[in-house]
Design a binder for these strands. Structure first.
Lengths: 232, 232
DNA sequence: CAAACAAAGATTGTATACAATTTTGTGTTC
DNA sequence: GAACACAAAATTGTATACAATCTTTGTTTG
């Protein structure tokens, strides 16, 4: 991702593309929770007017990645401990069922794609790119939701996974910010075996494990210049 | 709700207030699925510029009440049979658990409020206001989610309940568009008794019943002039 | 009459200008 | 140095102007 979409591409940035770029930056921890997202600054970075930026920010506010306060502007959301708990609780309610359904539906191509995700994730780690690895780790979950072929629930899971990256930035207390390696492997195996019950149970314990790795007793995030963060 | 917020109130309509007004109109079946939502027309109705209207429409598109097509404008969403099925399936996954939690947490005040909802709903029916009754019927469900005090899941349920009103408009095949009277009463009783297991089971069967009342084999909705629909 | 094409009108997407609100900077007083 | 008041600058909210795209209408052709 270069400086700004408009600078090097034939198409000007749209609200959607800016929202996606910001979402990715947030997900990869290139922008920290609490970071001010000034409309003028973003308009400069992306080479569009404030109108387009405002639409992007409004969209991101709907999935709670961005917090907009009237007359005070937008910033990257900073979930409270309560919100963090709720997000993981919601995941624990939705994702096991999704894994169950996915195990019944997964094709060879699906399994291959999941395995590619896992190896891409580890490649990113080896390349000292933990942000990328974190993003891919989350994408693994949304990919399982896609396989389950229930778009409504998959949409909720996508939102929850995105918010999880903010929560991890704020509350994670393990050295690695990632899901444990073997948990994803075991899930892929259960899906490959078409073992719905196993997939469901593995997903549940995986999420309970993630939830338990959160220290939900307040701490502060770091800040970073906006332009730097958006230029990996 | 009079002609337009700006016409009679000290405050001009905001994106949020317009989105709420449109959502209510959709929920009460005053605007049908598929209805074109022209920016200029809405700007006239609400006495604001297109900028504010666009923000409202974008917000509504995020909860899938409105469908925005680039360069073609916005219309009230028209869920497909697949989407309809998914929405109720998601509700069947989320709401029983929510009812379970609500039964454990409900206060006397909560129960009184739910009972008031039920009687308001019947008053609306008696007043030959089925749209209002439908809205209140849905609100009963979101109220239970509020009692459960899990904002993340309650947010999802709110979205699903709103979309349900569109689905009912398109696919409902019973004479009354409402939840059955005794189902809500029984739920309130289970909550009042603090019987979490009963509440969960009653909610599940209630939703399965609603789901079964849908004829998910395509049919068309009606259309209505926009100004008429927004002036109850 | 139907089909194809062009022109006119309407609508949507976006930039820019203006109004309103907030933040920052400066000076004064204690 | 801290607190306060005020002015200036910056940012956010919204209207309006302009550009791009789509839809409707009118005209021509077979």
């Amino acid at each position: 991702m270069t400086q700004g979409t408009a600078s090097h591409a034939a198409q000007p940035a749209t609200g959607d593309s800016i929202a996606q770029a910001l979402s990715l930056a947030i997900h990869e921890h290139r922008i920290a929770p609490g970071t001010k997202l000034g409309e003028g600054e973003l308009a400069d970075i992306y080479g569009v007017s404030r109108t387009v930026v405002r639409a992007a920010l409004l969209s991101l506010s709907h999935i709670k990645l961005v917090d907009i306060r009237r007359n005070k502007g937008a910033s990257v959301a900073s979930p409270s401990p309560t919100e963090a708990h709720e997000v993981f609780e919601a995941r624990e309610l939705l994702e096991p069922r999704t894994a169950h359904t996915a195990a019944r539906r997964a094709t060879q191509a699906d399994i291959a794609r999941l395995e590619r995700h896992i190896s891409d994730e580890h490649a990113a780690l080896d390349a000292a790119d933990p942000g990328r690895a974190l993003y891919l780790s989350g994408l693994f979950h949304t990919e399982i939701a896609r396989i389950a072929d229930q778009a409504t629930i998959a949409g909720f899971i996508e939102t929850l996974v995105a918010r999880s990256s903010l929560i991890i930035a704020l509350y994670w207390r393990r050295e690695s910010a990632l899901c444990e390696k073997h948990a994803h492997h075991a899930l892929v195996q259960a899906l490959a075996d078409g073992n719905a019950t196993q997939a469901e149970e593995l997903m549940r314990s995986h999420l309970v494990d993630l939830h338990s790795a959160l220290d939900l007793r307040e701490r502060n995030g770091r800040t970073l210049s906006l332009r730097d963060a958006l230029s990996p």
